[in-house]
Design a protein around this nucleic acid. Structure first.
Length: 783
RNA sequence: GCGGCGGUGUCGAAACUGGUAAACGAGACGGUCUCAAACACCGUUGGCCGAGAGGCCUUGUGGGUUCGAGUCCCACCCGCCGCACCA
């Protein structure tokens, strides 16, 4: 072997050994050790891994190694989120079957993950596109269907014209398709939904029980968007019907001076036959959602010519149709309180409508001498002109107002959510088929369990046509009804790929089970995932869906946990010169090229070193050279040392203390706060100290320092750590327990005592450690 | 607008429960080795004053609490992220 650090020689050797010996496989048999389930979000295999993948797995692998060496039985599996649009779009362009391109990507991902030396239990590897996997996705769908949690209904749904499929609310960002950026429109379609809203409160409440970054919890809370208030009935004489509205401010009912319906409201055209109304409603509906939702948009609307009765005071108030009211939220109609709502105020001013203040307060500086504040006032205060509640504080009176409405039969307490049920149908080919058939006599019929999986057939033409490409596969579509045996057609929509990834962490626990998706005892032993690692971009989508799935499965008695991911770590994005890496900018760093030029250990350490992994790290090509230099220094430090025991003897030296300091530092930084950057910095410091001190140092201390550095760097640079440790000790570092710092060697003999008078630094004195306070004062005075 | 996070050298960044800034790396400069370069090794590197010892200043801005503030409190400015006509 040469005298240079050659990762190209070292790394493949260890990778082969780990593969041959199946080092990272873990059994489901309980051996008394504490279990630890460490999981990175499963990758979507497209092309080859990018720098973000390198980062997640570098973080996760460090955690997995750290826990193993601290005595845990660690489950650290990996799989592929293999269904999805990109593979299908690729197929449309090239004609290559999505299965082929996907499996080619998977092979490349797997090869590279192995070349990074990630400690994966490969015996549990899976792809969500394999029939042995999606059979159980279908099976779980059927369990949700039986429980009434999967249902079919016609609704105005988001439709992406470019991808020619419907989308879930979560996949529409600012009115655009999350994938392709095309402006989404609405279509009325009959689609499959999962009843995630049944779980809104539990999804909200249980956030308190999990250790997740606060911003992710906040995002989920915002997304669920729970509002408490009341549902109130307004009678309309024209159609002799009651209209319900949802309001969070029933305390302002006495200030309701008009009533507004969304353009989509089915009664708008019944209430008015004026051309102006019909015209307004039509225009509002054809306007792109994006424009309609713009907040700074003028408040337009048209009077309907009818009135409703304000239930609290019997006043007739005029009705309008206006596009600032949304059909999707609440009941599609609102009571308008211009004095205390900015939108209603704006509308009232524009249309010259009555404004009645019913809550005192607000900024009085610019107000009239009567003492009432500026309008609109959205804050709290004393009620005025509010019948029996006048003079009461609005917040305190709220429950009584709701109760009073109830006693009058005009309202009731209500809770509303922003969260909508999860639309899971996709009019696309490359996804998990929905396991039902449509029978002329029996309607929707579930495919029996023993006929699963409903396999995805091979087809010729993947191009989307507004209906699923599967619809053209006649032989596959035409089937018999499992119930009556008569002719039936298969459901041709496939499931949203987020369904596939909502339960994969359960499958890993029992990945080769052919009888069930998992054995409950096995799943209960491993679950929940103790440490989940991934990007924030999944803060709502995947993380909310997976939580919903687990709660639903818990209710069905299939799992024993309420939450899938006990602890979550979200890593920041890797940038280059402050810019996001992207193919179009041509500034991407390819992990493959990096591993070839510098080795996996250097790449892994560097990416964990540029900053705290939760923050975005900025990549620099010079920086990686520095990391390579450090690993070379550590490697060289071991060259020429004899293999043998590592037993520091003699008087404690600075070097020995530094080694123990590094143990303590890495243990705390990595174990408690994911601070991989300062952990690696500590090992660098130890190696620097070693180079400074090794001439004339106690050889046993030198050996200890090198072995310790190898041992501590192992979670980040497993190949080099193993190599150096083996050279020195003849043993395998991963079989060694994590090193323990000797507390006696952590404390310095002396510390710097700061002496100051009136905040001015007067002197610094070297004081012996552990001196009492009065002794400190004596020293200070003496100086 | 609401919510969250952040603002520290030339750059990426450290600084645990307030303890007397800038660890570690990069870059730059100087030296050793070499015919020379690369590699490697050793050193210097926040600013100002000073020949030197040393002194003064410095964590977005302005106040405050404290013996002591990058860290805590108040106000403001800037940046990033999420949500946003949700009644």
């Amino acid at each position: 072997m040469s005298d240079r650090y050659e990762p190209g020689q070292i790394e493949p050797r260890w990778q082969r050994l780990w593969a041959d010996e199946r080092t990272w496989e873990v059994s489901n048999a309980d051996d008394g050790r504490e279990k630890s389930y460490v999981l990175e979000m499963l990758p979507y295999p497209s092309g080859e891994p990018h720098i973000g993948h390198l980062k997640v797995y570098s973080v996760g692998d460090a955690v997995a190694h750290f826990r193993r060496r601290n005595g845990h039985r660690v489950l650290h599996p990996l799989g592929y989120d293999a269904f999805g649009l990109p593979a299908e779009n690729h197929a449309i362009r090239t004609g290559q079957h999505p299965r082929e391109s996907t499996e080619a990507s998977i092979a490349e991902f797997q090869r590279q993950f192995r070349s990074w030396g990630i400690s994966i239990d490969w015996s549990r590897e899976l792809g969500t596109h394999e029939p042995t996997y999606y059979r159980w996705t279908q099976w779980l769908f059927l369990r949700l269907y039986e429980a009434g949690l999967a249902y079919r209904r016609e609704a105005a749904v988001n439709w992406c014209p470019k991808d020619a499929t419907v989308l879930a609310n979560e996949q529409v960002i600012d009115g655009r398709c999350e994938r392709c950026g095309t402006v989404v429109d609405k279509r009325d379609l009959e689609q499959w939904f999962f009843a995630i809203t049944n779980y809104a409160d539990r999804l909200l409440d249980d956030l308190d029980d999990i250790d997740w970054p606060p911003h992710v919890k906040t995002m989920q809370r915002n997304w669920i968007g729970r509002s408490e208030g009341a549902r109130v009935k307004f009678h309309c004489d024209a159609l002799d019907t009651d209209y319900e509205v949802f309001t969070t401010r029933p305390d302002t009912l006495w200030g309701a001076t008009f009533f507004v319906m969304a353009p989509e409201h089915p009664d708008v055209l019944k209430l008015s036959d004026s051309a102006e109304v019909a015209d307004y409603a039509r225009r509002a509906l054809t306007e792109p959602a994006e424009e309609r939702r713009a907040e700074d948009k003028e408040k337009t609307g048209v009077a309907l010519g009818s009135t409703v009765t304000n239930p609290v005071d019997g006043q007739e108030i005029p009705m309008f149709v206006a596009d600032y009211v949304l059909m999707e939220y609440g009941t599609g109609a609102v009571m308008a309180v211009p004095a205390h709502d900015e939108r209603d105020y704006e509308f009232a001013v524009k249309h010259g409508l009555n404004i009645r203040r019913v809550v005192e307060g607000g900024d009085t500086r610019s107000a009239s001498p009567t003492g009432t504040g500026e309008l609109p006032y959205t804050g709290d205060g004393l009620l005025t002109g509010s019948g029996p509640f006048t003079g009461r504080h609005n917040r305190e009176a709220m429950p009584e107002i709701i109760a009073w409405l109830g006693s009058e039969g005009r309202g009731e307490p209500a809770v509303d959510y922003r969260l909508r049920d999860w639309l899971i149908s996709r009019q696309r080919y490359w996804g998990c088929p929905i396991p039902v058939v449509h029978c002329e006599t029996d309607g929707v019929v579930a495919v029996p369990d023993d006929q699963l999986p409903v396999e995805l057939p091979d087809i010729e033409d993947y191009a989307p046509k507004g209906r699923s490409p599967l619809a053209a596969a006649d032989e596959w579509v035409n089937t018999t009804c499992p119930r009556c045996g008569g002719p039936a057609r298969r459901e041709t929509d496939t499931m949203d790929t987020f369904v596939d990834s909502s339960w994969y962490f359960l499958r890993y626990t029992d990945a080769r089970n052919a009888e069930a998706p998992w054995d409950r005892d096995v799943a209960d032993m491993w679950m929940p995932v103790d440490q989940y690692i991934g990007g924030v971009e999944h803060a709502i989508l995947h993380l909310m869906y997976a939580r919903f799935f687990v709660k639903a499965l818990a209710d069905l008695g299939l799992v024993g946990v309420q939450e899938p991911f006990a602890r979550l770590f979200t890593q920041g994005m890797v940038t280059r010169a402050g810019a996001k890496m992207s193919k179009s900018k041509g500034n991407v760093v390819s992990p493959r090229a990096l591993v070839e030029s510098h080795g996996a250990d250097t790449a892994r350490c560097y990416i964990l070193y540029v900053g705290h992994p939760a923050e975005g790290g900025d990549w620099s090509d010079e920086g990686i050279e520095g990391m390579h230099r450090f690993l070379s220094r550590l490697w060289r430090a071991a060259q020429g040392l004899e293999q043998g025991p590592v037993e520091p003897s003699g008087e404690p030296s600075a070097l020995l203390r530094k080694a123990h300091w590094a143990i303590e530092k890495v243990t705390r930084d990595l174990g408690e706060r994911f601070a991989t950057h300062t952990s690696i910095a500590a090992v660098i410091e130890l190696v620097n100290e070693l180079y400074r001190e090794r001439e004339g140092a106690d050889p046993s201390h030198v050996r200890f320092a090198v072995a310790t550095a190898a041992s501590l760097i192992f979670p980040f640079a497993p190949h080099l750590g193993s190599e150096v440790y083996e050279q020195l000790t003849g043993t395998r570092v991963w079989e060694q327990p994590w090193p323990q710092a000797d507390p006696a060697l952590l404390t310095e003999d002396t510390f710097e005592l700061i002496v100051q008078v009136n905040g001015k630094l007067v002197d610094r004195v070297a004081a012996p450690a552990g001196v009492e306070e009065d002794e400190q004062e004596r020293l200070a005075r003496a100086s």
